[in-house]
Amino acid sequence: MRRLSITRREALTDLWLAGPATLVMVLFIFLPVAIVAVLSFTDYQFGAPSFAWIGLENYSKLFGSTLGRRAISNTLIYVAIVIPVSVGLGLAVALGLHRMMAWAPWLSQLLRTIYFLPVAATLVAMSVAWQMVLHPSLGVVNQTLAALGGTPQDWLSDRGLVLYTLAAIGIWQAVGYNMVLFLAGLVAIPPELYDAAEVDGAGHGWSRFWTVTWPMLGPTTLFVMVVTATNAFRVFETVATLTRGGPAFASDTLVYALYREGFIYFKAGYASAITMVFFAFLLILTLAQFRIVEKKVHYR
């Protein structure tokens, strides 16, 4: 066997180390993205022998039809509810637990564990549990409402209510995650700043919050908002488990529509267009996130 020159061998080593990962990235990420972009301009149906180029028709169908617009607006409403509420609650819980650390560390620790539980728990199984909690007759929510003299609601089958119910479950899941990110931000605030605020007469309550805590948490807050938004945009598990987009598409979202059109009705072309729109929303958000992370680094 002829011995390879050392530069040759080094190059082969690099190929051996970095090549496989690069290859699977191309195969399972970049190639599919290219294909989905191309498919979105066709009327391809899964299993069909051929397809035709139909230009932007899939997109105009998505943006022009009631159903398509429904999926987009539902997703945007869902995101618009989940972001402010889960970020606000996450911040409030983090502030409370952070202060509680000073006088009841064990309780603070216990509550933090509880708030984080939904992040680790299997969302589909928890959705099944939520279904029972919200059950029209057997659920604890309606039973409590009835006992208090209120009107029981069809939380998951009332067209006007279902999207808000799903948003509430989304918030339930996101608060703990946001709390952890905020707690990390709170710990990073240098204590000298609070001493300085104390000296300047802004050491208590709201003035302390507005002069020190809130400005110092600014970058964290932006970051948390974008992370929450990217997660909210992908809402799928709760929809698929609890409503399947219904009733009458009242809780249809982009990812669920993608799934339904692509994998139940096998309309690969149309589903690809939905995918591209979903991708565009997320790209904008993720690029914003990168900008923020970068800023956060310079800030320090």
């Binding site: 599919p32 294909i35 990217t230 979903f278 790209l283």
Partner: peptide
């Protein structure tokens, strides 16, 4: 670049 791509985007071509 791959970090920017959520899994959902690649699902259709991978399925096909």
């Amino acid at each position: 670049a791959a970090l920017l791509v959520p899994f959902h985007v690649t699902a259709i071509p991978i399925f096909l």
